[in-house]
Simulated assay, not measured.
Amino acid sequence: MFMVTINQDKCEGCGSCVDACPAKILGMTEGKAEVIGDAADCLGCETCLELCPTEAFSIMEL
């Protein structure tokens, strides 16, 4: 099981993570990426980590 978090101070709101997330747990709120689903539903694929130009994402294995 994995848990995804987003550092809002680093997020620039490009949105590339939202479209690419296979678990569909990411969305945009007020111009920033946000976990809108259950963060524990993260698949641990690291797609968001690879796409994020500001390294705003972190994934932790639980």
Score class of each variant (00 low, 15 high):
Ala39Ile: 02
Met3Thr: 14
Met1Asn: 09
Lys24Val: 08
Thr29Ser: 10
Asp9Asn: 14
Cys21Arg: 01
Cys17Gly: 11
Phe57Asn: 01
Glu34Asp: 13
Thr54Tyr: 12
Ile6Val: 15
Glu46Arg: 14
Glu46Asp: 14
Cys14Tyr: 14
Met28Ser: 03
Cys42Lys: 02
Ala39Thr: 06
Glu50Trp: 11
Glu30Phe: 11
Ser58Pro: 03
Phe2His: 12
Leu43Ala: 13
Ser16Arg: 11
Glu61Asn: 08
Lys32Trp: 00
Ile59His: 04
Glu34Tyr: 08
Glu30Gly: 08
Leu62Ser: 08
Ile6Leu: 11
Ala56Ile: 06
Cys17Val: 12
Val4Arg: 01
Thr54Glu: 15
Val4Cys: 03
Thr54Asn: 15
Asn7Tyr: 08
Ala20Leu: 12
Glu12Lys: 15
Leu43Asp: 05
Lys32His: 02
Glu46Thr: 13
Met3Asp: 07
Asp19Ile: 07
Ile25Ser: 04
Ala20Phe: 04
Gly27Phe: 02
Ala33Tyr: 00
Pro53Thr: 06
Ala20Gln: 08
Cys45Asp: 04
Met60His: 09
Ala40Thr: 12
Phe2Ser: 05
Cys52Trp: 00
Val4Ser: 00
Met60Leu: 10
Ala56Gly: 05
Thr29Gln: 14
Cys52Tyr: 03
Asp41Phe: 05
Gly44Ser: 10
Cys11Trp: 07
Glu61Arg: 14
Ala33Glu: 01
Ala40Asp: 13
Thr29Asn: 07
Gly13Ser: 09
Glu46His: 11
Gly44Ile: 02
Cys14Asp: 14
Ile59Cys: 09
Gly37Thr: 04
Gly13Tyr: 02
Cys48Leu: 08
Gly37Phe: 01
Leu43Glu: 11
Leu26Tyr: 00
Ala20Ile: 09
Ala20Lys: 04
Cys52Pro: 03
Val4Phe: 03
Ala40Asn: 11
Leu51Ser: 12
Ala39Tyr: 01
Lys24Phe: 10
Ala39Arg: 13
Ile6Glu: 03
Leu26Lys: 01
Ile6Tyr: 06
Gly15Thr: 14
Val4Lys: 01
Glu12Arg: 15
Cys17Lys: 02
Leu51Lys: 05
Phe57Met: 10
Pro22Met: 10
Gly31Asn: 07
Cys48Gly: 03
Glu34Gly: 02
Lys32Asp: 00
Ala56Tyr: 02
Lys32Arg: 15
Gly13Lys: 08
Leu49Phe: 04
Met3Ala: 13
Leu51Cys: 07
Met3Arg: 15
Asp9Met: 11
Met28Val: 04
Glu30Cys: 05
Thr5Glu: 13
Ala40Tyr: 07
Thr47Cys: 06
Ala56Val: 10
Gly31Ile: 11
Ala23Gln: 05
Cys17Asn: 05
Glu46Ser: 13
Gln8Phe: 04
Glu46Ala: 11
Ile25Thr: 06
Ile36Glu: 06
Cys11His: 11
Leu62His: 05
